[in-house]
């Protein structure tokens, strides 16, 4: 449950995964010139790396029986449950929050008007828009449907064993293709450190 809530919190619109990327892509186009090219290429590849990371954890969770059987004290559920409720509220009322508080706060930070508007439950940017039904659909498909699927059971359907070509073996195949990634781990760590420092420097010198 903790893992499911955790992933719901990073997946739900308007803050999580693809919707956050949507804001960055649309915003990135406004930068102009070489900056835009570099920014967009970095986001395109970086977001994929992030997706792989998410799935490495999801894969581990779904394939590791011990992780699924683990029982936690109910008190551990309180913080993610609060987070989940807040996400629900912000996702459904993003239009109000984005059009008011968020836009004004962001404008105060960047010292420029922020071209984001809330409209009919959705978000409008200069280059495109997310409508309310997009948010609701994503909310259902990402959050509610997997939770319902994890809780409820189909009735009147026979359960069968997975197909294994007649062999009785336990496999640990979820991360099989991720193993070679270990070779570039040091390089990736160094790169992320450099990029992190660049962000600090860029912020410090207002670049």
């Amino acid at each position: 449950m903790l893992v499911v809530l955790g992933f719901v919190s990073i997946a739900l619109p308007p803050f999580g995964v693809f919707f956050a990327k949507w804001l960055v892509y649309e915003g990135g186009n406004g930068a102009g010139g070489v900056t835009t090219v570099i920014l967009l290429l970095f986001i395109a590849v970086g977001s994929v790396a992030l997706t792989l990371l998410y799935f490495k954890t999801i894969g581990r969770f779904l394939t590791d029986g011990a992780a699924q059987r683990e029982k936690e004290d109910y008190r551990y559920l309180i913080p993610p449950a609060i987070l989940g409720v807040l996400l629900l509220v912000f996702a459904l009322f993003i239009s109000v929050a984005m059009g008011g508080f968020f836009r004004e706060t962001a404008a105060d930070i960047v010292l420029n008007p922020v071209p984001v508007w809330g409209d009919k439950g959705g978000i409008i940017l200069p280059f495109g828009q997310i409508k309310l039904w997009h948010i609701l659909a994503a909310f259902f498909l990402l959050g509610i449907a997997p939770l319902l699927a994890a809780i409820f059971r189909f009735k009147g359907v026979d359960r069968v064993m997975p197909y294994t070509c007649g062999e009785r073996i336990e496999t640990d195949a979820y991360s099989f293709y991720f193993d070679p990634a270990g070779k570039i781990e040091s390089f990736a760590n160094l790169l992320s450190l450099v990029l992190f420092l660049l962000v600090i420097l860029a912020g410090a010198f207002n670049l």
């Binding site: 699927a149 994890a150 189909f154 359960r159």
Partner: peptide, 10 residues
């Protein structure tokens, strides 16, 4: 109708 488990089918 057959499934290995409900979550997978859903």
């Amino acid at each position: 109708p057959m499934m290995i488990h409900s979550f997978h089918a859903a």
